[in-house]
Write a protein that binds this DNA or RNA. Structure first.
Lengths: 159, 159
DNA sequence: GTAATACCTATAGCGACTAGAGGTTCAAGT
DNA sequence: ACTTGAACCTCTAGTCGCTATAGGTATTAC
């Protein structure tokens, strides 16, 4: 029988950080990072100072990963976690947060779509000669050759 | 008449970093940053150690900003600049680079669209009671409530 | 001459991790 | 009981593309 530090009960089933990571679809480094920034509570340790987790940690981390997968920022996830902890509160704020995020996603799709169209246009018009005649380089050199007048999406349209 | 250091000709028209930035749609800090990482050549200085630029710098910086606006990475822009410097070379590589970028933009649009649909679905199904009954929290808690089986787009779907 | 503005360098910070160094603990096999 | 190898620990630095300070110097307008 494994010896447990006083904080750990002998009846519950504990797993290590590796298994937690596997269960919830991320890496051990990320789990430690989430603990460091306070998204996850600091885990109890065994006698050898290793983190031990229960099913509730799996649930919390899965929630975090899923919300991140939806593109919610870490700060938004922090809010969502707080809200999820109070099931009796009205879900208005959750709704607002989700709608705000949806609007951001839609705006990004719009910008990316404009960029895509312009890219397609300039690729299609490249006849395939040398760089001096290349329409792609032309368009990049001169914004007036673009369909749309304003900036295309800001430099941060990707990444 | 302004005194010029030996490297600066007296016949050409020079501008400072602020005007260059304004002309090309970015900030002086960004210009210095581009010089530091080698996207822009190190500019000649006047007697007071301030950078002086000519029209060619405006063109180069405008190219950079425009390509960045299209979402090309700094490394891709570096390649594009190299290519633009050799107008006699075939434009095949330019084409490849642009097509590769287009594919990335399209992939990102696809991921964002999937995220958007799922967000809309979960927002529509929220009846507006308390958090305990909130469909948004439910979906985030349990991936099985999603239409699509895989991850939605990775955590980096935005930003 | 003076005051406001523009410029200089160097360094640190953002978000959300990821990777590495250098060490400790655990679990399995002999 | 011993050894090996995997998993774990902390701490620090790196990624990308800027942006923002701090603390100084130069230029320009009045």
């Amino acid at each position: 029988m494994k010896k447990l530090s006083p904080a750990l009960s002998t009846t519950e089933h504990y797993i290590g950080i590796g298994e937690l990571a596997r269960e919830s679809g991320c890496k051990p480094e990320t789990v430690r990072y989430y603990e460091r920034i306070g998204l996850l509570p600091s885990a109890p340790r065994n006698e050898g100072n290793q983190r031990r987790y229960t099913a509730s940690a799996i649930r919390r981390l899965t929630f975090i990963r899923h919300a991140r997968d939806f593109g919610f920022s870490v700060e938004a996830v922090r809010e969502l976690l707080k809200m999820a902890d109070y099931p009796a509160m009205p879900c208005e704020e959750v709704d607002t947060l989700a709608k705000h995020h949806l609007a951001e996603v839609e705006a990004r799709i719009a910008r990316l779509t404009a960029v895509r169209d312009e890219l397609q246009r300039m690729i299609n018009q490249c006849a395939g000669g040398n760089i001096g005649q290349c329409h792609i380089i032309d368009v990049l050199s001169d914004h007036r050759l673009c369909e749309h007048p304003g900036p295309h999406g800001g430099a941060d349209v990707l990444r």
